[in-house]
């Protein structure tokens, strides 16, 4: 499922790779150093990849649609991995410094690929919850739901004079409503939360009379709503937090590359 605007970039990327691979081979044939060709290409690619972050800060000026930048970023990222292998000629270099550089490069690549995959997969799951909630508002939404649940619990206790629901809330449900739960299940598309609500969450229902059941069902309904919000939290959180790895690692790789470039120029060329 390749988006149409990515296609030209894929063609361009393949062409670039073919050109660089061919040229580095020619240089190698002439006993030049093909690593210079591939290395500088890789460095330029890294800079261009890094510029995507800059682009996001420059929304106020027309510097190309971000979607084009992303398409470029994805293709150039894959190209960079290929270029990296072309450059090192191996999966794993020998020098300690290069090993650190390679390890970070691989981490950036892996986080990037991971990010791309979740960004393609998770929005669908969020849409299918049927609700839409802004990430920053999730704590407030949970707080609101918790307030409502606690209000219902109090009201139930006052109206019926029985604290069964309240006891259940304190003993069991509170854990669920306190904060987002079952994050991993939400991310992988499981229904652990629903299962929990139907199981331990509903355990007290058989001890309730009809009035209490009315309140209790409202609470469970709010629990179901919270499950959907939890799903939003889990997925949106992951869609944001992978960047906590990707971006700092990227800047590290770029800085290490600069030093690498400097050393190569001073020591080996």
């Amino acid at each position: 499922m390749i988006r149409p605007m990515t296609l030209p970039f894929i063609v361009l990327g393949l062409a670039t790779f073919a050109l660089v691979a061919w040229y580095s081979r020619v240089v190698g044939m002439q006993l030049g150093n093909p690593a210079i060709v591939t290395g500088y290409t890789l460095f330029v690619l890294m800079i261009l990849l890094g510029l995507f972050n800059m682009r996001k800060r420059l929304s106020m000026v027309p510097v190309g649609r971000s979607s084009l930048w992303l398409a470029f970023h994805v293709v150039a990222g894959v190209l960079a991995i290929a270029m990296f292998w072309l450059h090192t000629g191996a999966l794993w270099p020998t020098g300690l410094y290069e090993q650190v550089l390679a390890a970070l490069f691989y981490l950036v690549s892996i986080t990037g690929i991971f990010g791309y995959l979740i960004l393609r997969a998770l929005p669908r799951r969020l849409t299918q919850t049927g609700i839409e909630v802004i990430y920053e508002r999730i704590p407030a939404e949970l707080g609101e739901i918790r307030d409502k649940v606690e209000a219902l619990t109090l009201e139930c206790t006052e109206k019926t004079g029985s604290d069964t629901v309240a006891q259940h809330y304190i003993g069991t449900l509170n854990w669920f409503f306190r904060r987002p739960r079952f994050g991993f299940s939400h991310i992988v598309g499981g229904d652990a939360a629903g299962h929990w609500l139907r199981g331990p969450g509903s355990a007290a229902r058989r001890y309730l009379n009809d009035v209490e059941k009315g309140y209790f069902d409202q609470i469970l309904e709010l629990g179901t709503l919270k499950t959907q919000i939890d799903r939003h939290y889990a997925c949106q959180d992951l869609m944001k937090k992978w960047l906590l790895l990707h971006v700092p690692l990227s800047i590290s790789v770029i800085l290490l590359s600069v030093w690498h470039l400097l050393l190569v120029n001073v020591y080996a060329l």
């Binding site: 937090k241 906590l244 971006v247 700092p248 690692l249 590290s252 800085l255 290490l256």
Partner: peptide
């Protein structure tokens, strides 16, 4: 800090750490 703010600090730290180690 917002997640982005946190990310910014992490990025800055990573950069500083790399430069320091180098």
């Amino acid at each position: 800090l917002s997640l982005r703010g946190y990310r910014g600090r992490l990025t800055f730290l990573a950069a500083a750490l790399v430069i320091a180690l180098i």
